[in-house]
Amino acid sequence: MLALFYILAAISVVSALIVVSARNPVNSVISLVVCFLSIAGHYILLNAQFLAMVHVIVYTGAIMVLFLFVIMLLNLNTATEPMKSLGMRVAAVTGGGLLFITLAAAIRHGVAIAATNAFDPGVGLVKTVGHVLFTEFLLPFEVSSVLFLSAIVGVVMLARKEKHQPDAPVEPLTEAERARRTA
């Protein structure tokens, strides 16, 4: 079990690193998909069956596909972008590393939280999750549909091609006009 965890963890970390460092955006996307799948594996290890399924369907199946669509749409598969300045890169790596070290230091004495519930391995089954979802979290569940509606409307608004008349061409101000306006 532990070995399985380590393998999956290694896959997650390596693929994450590839996401961050790959030149070609498509490589990044593929690597991210691999990362997501490994995380789905972690979910299964934790007996979170419902989440693992939803994760694969929503994230890997929908969101990453969407990313790929956009990349293809914008024709970025061949693009290689210039790198950031060296200082920025160093700062980025340093920042990330510091963040990890700090967070790790936070739990150096172990994560000791008293469990509030009795140990129930059935947490993570579809039945349990569904039960909680539709009793305690019913309202957020319904409201999230409104969220989706607003997201859809927003996307349509944003991505629509504008059909208005082009503005009258703007001529630069003449010297006299500029002087008159700033006086």
Binding site: K84, M88, A91, G95, G96, L99, T102, L103, A105
Partner: peptide, 20 residues
């Protein structure tokens, strides 16, 4: 954007250190 993200990161680290 990235500079601001870095600044946020820095602030977060600082805050965490102080809390720790």
């Amino acid at each position: 954007v990235s500079f601001h993200m870095l600044a946020m990161l820095g602030g977060l680290i600082l805050f965490l250190i102080i809390t720790l």
